Amino acid sequence: MAPNVTTVEEITDSLHQGLDLAKLGKEQGRYLVYPDKKASYPELEPFEHKDRGLRGDPKKASIYDNATKIFDVTPHIGTEIHGIQLSQLTETQKDDLALLVAERGVLVFRDQDINVDQGLEFGKSFGPLHVHSTFGHPPGYPEVHVVYYDENSVEREYLDATTQTEQWHNDVSYEEQPPSVTLLKMTLVPPTGGDTMFASSYAAYDRLSPSMQKFLEGLQAKHSAQRQFDEANAQNHVIRRTHVESIHPVIRTHPVTGWKALYVQPEFTTSIVGLSKHESDAILQLLFNHISAGYDFQVRLKWEVWDNRTTFHNPIFDYLDVAPRHGWRVTPQAEKPYFDPNSKSKKQADREARAARKQ
């Protein structure tokens, strides 16, 4: 189904109308709207970010004491939580959630009643909400990123021309201040397939040799939105902002945990600053292969909250000939990525914590 196009006046009307996105996705398919003028969106402004996870309880008691069931899905990434509704979190629970997701990378909450307006309020608790430069969105909801794919999706040509290993990414890492805690609510899922794979960028760093870790620390890489801009131009969609790329550290430090994480991926990272093209391409391909082959620090899930700073993710398009998949995402922005040379790896922090408990 071809996307609808609306006027700039409609697109900039941020009065949320209580849309039922689950119903829209089921009945209308790809119901997105697009602006007809670039001026409908301003450039993103820099801001100071202080992660609320810094206020979290190390025991995360407000989460653990109120969940009916909670368990780690794999040793390195993913925790599943039952019995808590994201629509009803207290401020203390949001602090503890921010700390828990910083540590575990991905949280899965089952049987959620949260609607899109509540999702926006949830997202605002963690930072200014991102509006995508090229993608459409529901009428009146520019901050909502819709996930809708079926057998007729215009993106299918690109998906058919690439391998699944090329689609690992951190969302919009080309922004100066990329996202942090991110909410994805699925409303329509195929009977089989349509999962998302996540990989821990903490563990990805830990799995590198000490010599490679030392080499990468302090390097910077270019992250580019050019492919998404080219796709928008090909589909005659307005590109809302001029910003195309940012330079971020190859190894970044999480502001809450203080742990080191690998921060390059094949979707948006195009080169390493200061290296020749030959050297940059070789190092990046090595790191991309390292991520895609890291089966011991990956997890495959449906329905989740994740930290875009310390996880890579990869939607699995194995369902396009089976049934549609629909959901929506709310994406708060956070700090500009940085590297603290005094930060620790997660492996080192875990080792020190175990030693402290034995004393």
Rank of each mutant, 00 (worst) to 15 (best):
E48G: 02
F215V: 01
T134H: 06
W168D: 05
V273H: 06
Q348R: 14
E335L: 07
T311M: 04
T12Y: 00
P337M: 06
V322M: 10
K69Q: 02
V33W: 11
S211T: 11
F215A: 03
Y158F: 12
A39W: 01
R300Q: 14
R252Q: 14
W328M: 05
K346D: 15
A355H: 05
F312G: 01
A282V: 04
T242E: 14
A22M: 13
A67H: 02
L107I: 12
D65I: 06
G258S: 10
V305Q: 02
A98W: 08
Q164I: 15
A356G: 13
N342A: 15
Y149H: 15
R329M: 12
K94G: 08
P179C: 10
F268T: 09
E267H: 11
H290V: 00
E157K: 12
P128G: 15
T192E: 05
P341W: 15
P266L: 10
W306S: 03
V5T: 13
I316G: 00
A293Y: 08
R207L: 14
L15C: 11
A221M: 13
I283C: 13
P35Q: 06
F312M: 03
E279Q: 13
K69R: 06
D113V: 07
I70K: 10
P210Q: 03
R252T: 11
P332N: 03
H49K: 05
K277F: 10
S271H: 15
E10W: 09
H49W: 15
T7K: 02
E10D: 14
S343A: 13
H145A: 08
L89H: 09
V273G: 00
E155Y: 07
T134Y: 03
N4F: 11
K50Q: 09
F215G: 00
M197K: 09
G136T: 01
P35F: 04
D72R: 08
L107M: 15
Y202E: 14
G105N: 12
T270Q: 11
W168R: 08
R241L: 05
Q177R: 15
Y205R: 00
P46G: 03
Y64K: 02
M186L: 10
L262S: 04
F339W: 05
S14I: 02
P341R: 12
S211G: 02
D51Y: 09
N4G: 04
T12G: 04
T310S: 10
K60N: 07
N236T: 01
V189H: 09
T196D: 13
T6G: 01
S87Q: 12
G123R: 08
Y295P: 00
V154H: 07
G127M: 07
A353K: 11
S153C: 12
T253Q: 06
P3S: 11
T311F: 03
H254K: 00
L24T: 06
S133V: 00
S133P: 10
G25K: 04
V256C: 03
N115S: 07
S343Y: 14
Q220E: 04
T270L: 02
E157L: 06
F297Q: 01
S14R: 08
A221L: 08
